[in-house]
Design a protein around this nucleic acid. Structure first.
Lengths: 142, 142
DNA sequence: TCACAAAAGTAGATCTAGTCTAAAGTTGGA
DNA sequence: TCCAACTTTAGACTAGATCTACTTTTGTGA
């Protein structure tokens, strides 16, 4: 658990309780795109008494305060992304894994010229398969 | 109801029952991106006895046979798209409406060069607001 | 230090989209 | 006509997410 976690929450106008810090220290430092229940499972390892409602409350609070984004990319689950910068997403159709692609990996032209729509935000959504070995990533560090 | 509807189903290896034709004649000719329950509501106007399971069965069958695509773009609902060609999507953040953008409206470069991923398919997903008058579209014709 | 209001957390009920099941109805070819 | 395969049905079930009403914790100020 990072020492600066509480400070980070306060910076965003969130009172730092023990549960919130516990949730933050996982969800803000993973690139696994966990669902709410994934987060619950993880946080329960350390705090078995934490309720599902708290997980949902806290994640929604984080989204509202701009610490997280939530993504609707795959069926039946809302997933959280600690990367709040602009970026694209690749979905592995075999495993369901979601990967972030840095913004400048791709270039989208003519967005400005679309007629009749005010575009506030966009991203490219790619589907296919990740090549080579299954992802070896392990730790939460970023 | 189009006379050619049944033929279109058969072409795709789907036996044409009355319900299937009824569902097809709405869902294959709309650009409203309806959810399964939207389809149910609509089809019930003509066939009040149709069950929810049939709607789901039929829509899933259409997807499987390539007559429809299903999209997961907005929270909590799977939506169907009769446009099976490559295209992009714009979501109006005010109304939740989904609009199709023709493939060549935008140009995405460097997709081929992405390392470590086999891209099978991609699209640009834009969010913002549609400008001007609320959509005036009415009929199902295409 | 204590009192107490506001904030945070809780269990479990509820909601909703979607799937499953088992039975009934329909169809079409031998 | 018979029968097997297919289609449709009502309603049970599931899972993700939210809501509700209650309890616990926290922190401020007398």
């Amino acid at each position: 658990m990072r020492p600066d976690e509480a400070a980070r929450l306060e910076e965003h106008g969130i009172k730092a309780s023990a549960h919130r810090v516990a949730i933050a220290s996982y969800v803000l430092h993973t690139d696994e795109h966990p669902s709410a229940d994934d987060v619950w499972a993880r946080v329960k390892q350390a705090f078995p008494m934490v309720s599902r409602a708290t997980i949902y409350n806290t994640l929604n609070l984080f989204v509202e305060k701009g610490l997280l984004r939530h993504l609707v990319l795959t069926e039946g689950r809302l997933v959280f992304d600690s990367n709040v910068e602009k970026h694209h997403h690749f979905i592995d159709e075999g495993t369901g894994q979601i990967y972030d692609l840095p913004w400048d990996t791709l270039k989208v032209s003519r967005v400005k010229q679309i007629k009749g729509f005010d575009v506030r935000d966009y991203q490219v959504l790619l589907r296919g398969r990740k090549r080579g070995r299954k992802r070896e990533k392990k730790s939460d560090s970023r």
